[in-house]
Design a protein around this nucleic acid. Structure first.
Lengths: 164, 164
DNA sequence: AGCTCCAAGTTCGGTGAACGAACCAACTGT
DNA sequence: ACAGTTGGTTCGTTCACCGAACTTGGAGCT
């Protein structure tokens, strides 16, 4: 993002975080990575982002240690996985805008309970890690019909690769 | 932000949230509003953002219902206050980058305990609302010396107006 | 080996957003 | 009445985003 080229002027941890995930498209890319997307072409099919921009963002995420490049796959690192609470709470906040129905629902795999807005399982009372979350389509399901969107509509565990 | 001018293409609640708070500077403005900044000139003094951009962002935040304009003050709405978990978790995540020390610390006013990364008070076990959080300067305190930064370094309750 | 195909990028010109400086209007204190 | 502050708007330059075209690199086939 570069707030004035460097953030000595904004010495705040939020500004540093935004340097990494605050640019256009970046957080949507991270979200897709949580959903299981790993390949360049799959990010592209799902996001309609220009190739040059996608290439730039993936590179920056790799440099920052959010994603790891393994061959032609971009895999979430532990540090990237720590972004889950951010992605989740922001997504939940966005649900209230325009009074829309949720597109996706998140369930605790071990007990089947729906995760709360704060990222906790009301049954277990604990913060649920991405790996223990199952993704299912919500009431306001997607209108997109690209292959990636279709696959993402099938219930699956978070961070599980989209491709077999 | 406008992802392709409209988000019918990205029908996801995260994309909607990013339309509101995903543009450059916007989340830093929201953070300052949590810290007690309310006036145009104070946002400017603390953020070094071009006037035209600040004007645009504040207007959009008012339109979106995140801030409320009361005379010459931009005050956080309840909907805006719901963004606290997002701002807090993202800020905490940013602390790990470059192994920096926290600039600010957050304490539960009623019991004096430091708030956890997930926004909970370990003593009370509950999610702490912004109004019940006290702000204090951290170990890696700020290098900025504008009047707003100085006032923000004094311990104070979140959302309390910076000016008396 | 050589050839083809496709995923994964890079390069390039055009367009829109961000930047900083200058300007403007309304209110305040003297 | 005037000067200073606050809260903007306007404008030319610079920079990032965009889409299309082009290039690279590896897998599979013959």
């Amino acid at each position: 993002m570069a707030l004035g080229k460097d953030y000595t002027s904004q010495d705040c941890s939020l500004a540093r975080a935004l340097e990494v995930v605050g640019e256009r498209w970046t957080l949507l890319i991270v979200r897709d990575a949580f959903y299981g997307v790993r390949r360049f072409s799959d990010f592209r099919a799902h996001l309609d982002v220009p190739k040059a921009v996608l290439s730039d963002r993936l590179q920056k995420l790799v440099d920052a240690g959010v994603l790891d490049k393994e061959g032609h796959e971009y895999v979430m690192t532990p540090m990237g996985a720590d972004l889950w609470p951010v992605v989740h709470t922001l997504g939940r906040w966005g649900e209230r805008l325009h009074g829309s129905l949720p597109y996706r629902l998140f369930f605790h795999t071990s007990c089947g309970t729906r995760i709360e807005a704060d990222g906790r399982c009301p049954a277990c009372g604990e913060l649920v890690a991405p790996r223990d979350i199952e993704l299912r389509p919500g009431a306001g399901s997607e209108r997109r019909d690209d292959p990636v969107s279709k696959r993402l509509r099938e219930p699956h565990r978070m961070l599980e690769p989209l491709r077999p």
